[in-house]
């Protein structure tokens, strides 16, 4: 390579090594150490501590006698209602993910294919903007829309004076609606990135060969956007399975999920070992999901 002829081969390690005060690896370590030390203190050590806690028989506060036990992990046998809680949590998470997938894919498709030109960027920002605001406040906002006598009912009564209340706050559908509202922009983004990469000519070819729109949708667009769909689903399912504030606020008495049970162990019941064990069971599920889809996620991230 002629360009490198008159430049010292590798400037930083070669030509300037004599003038540089310190070897390069020292600089690299010095640059990286603060970040990873901080993450160790804030993330990795706490996870280890919680793992240890999950094997204790009781919270070590006061004069509590504490011994090593596996009983916390048997919670699904000793407290059968927890199975029901887990199933409801999974169903809420699946319903939310599916809802986001359908609504979000179509929104991304409309955004990518509606020929909007320059306003596309503005629409994309409009869709992502609420995502950037506090999730708690957005969930709180839904209580004003959904409660009986709330905004939804007022609008209905404006058109039909004697209408019965259709407010459905404190139900599971309310939880799902709030969660879909919270996580939809993720799906729009991941699907949009996958969809704009599809060449117009492929769709034109399909149309010129007589394919109907549903054939194009299910045989061309959905399969080609699959990495985006899968990434979106993973990115939504994982936080939703750990949600506790949303079911608490929108579900009221029926909003008992794995998340709220864990929250209660740490804030109300003070059964930290049980909370830790439940957290680790949840973490295992999360890691299993990431391991299963790591290939798709990595390809999508590099694209």
């Amino acid at each position: 390579m002629p360009a490198e002829g008159n430049v010292p081969a590798s400037p930083r390690s070669g030509g300037n090594a004599a003038t540089a005060a310190m070897p390069k690896w020292v600089a690299t370590v010095a640059l990286l150490l603060p970040t990873y030390a901080w993450l160790t203190l804030a993330i990795f050590l706490p996870l280890c501590a919680m793992f240890a806690f999950s094997f204790l028989s009781a919270t070590p506060m006061g004069n509590e006698q504490v011994s090593f036990t596996l009983q916390q992990y048997a919670v699904f046998q000793t407290q059968p209602y927890m199975i029901e809680v887990a199933i409801w949590s999974l169903m809420i998470a699946v319903a939310t993910t599916l809802g986001c997938a359908i609504l979000g894919f179509l929104a991304a498709l409309a955004l990518a294919r509606a020929g909007l030109g320059r306003s596309r960027q503005i629409l994309l920002i409009l869709i992502v903007l609420p995502f950037w605001t506090n999730q708690l406040i957005r969930i709180f906002s839904w209580t004003m829309v959904l409660r009986s006598g709330g905004f939804l009912d007022s609008v209905l009564h404006f058109f039909w004076a004697g209408a019965p209340s259709i407010g459905f706050l404190y139900t599971r559908p309310a939880i799902v609606l709030g969660l879909i509202h919270g996580y939809l922009p993720y799906m729009v983004l991941t699907c949009y990135i996958a969809l704009i990469a599809i060449d117009d000519e492929i769709i034109e070819a399909a149309m010129s060969l007589g394919a109907r729109w549903w054939t194009i949708l299910f045989k061309v667009l959905v399969p080609m956007a699959m990495p985006g769909l899968v990434s979106g689903c993973v990115l939504i399912f994982v936080p939703v399975i750990g949600a506790f504030m949303e079911p608490r606020i929108l579900g009221g008495p029926v909003g008992v999920t794995l998340g709220t049970v864990i929250e209660d162990q740490f804030t109300q019941a003070f059964n930290w070992p049980l909370g830790s064990a439940l957290s680790f069971i949840m973490l295992a599920v999360v890691l299993a999901i990431f391991a299963t889809f790591s290939g798709v996620l990595r390809r999508n991230a590099s694209a």
Binding site: A42, L47, M50, F53, S276, S279
Partner: peptide
């Protein structure tokens, strides 16, 4: 999920 990291930090 932040629920897990948050409770872990608390512990």
């Amino acid at each position: 999920p932040w629920l897990i990291t948050g409770t872990a930090m608390l512990v």
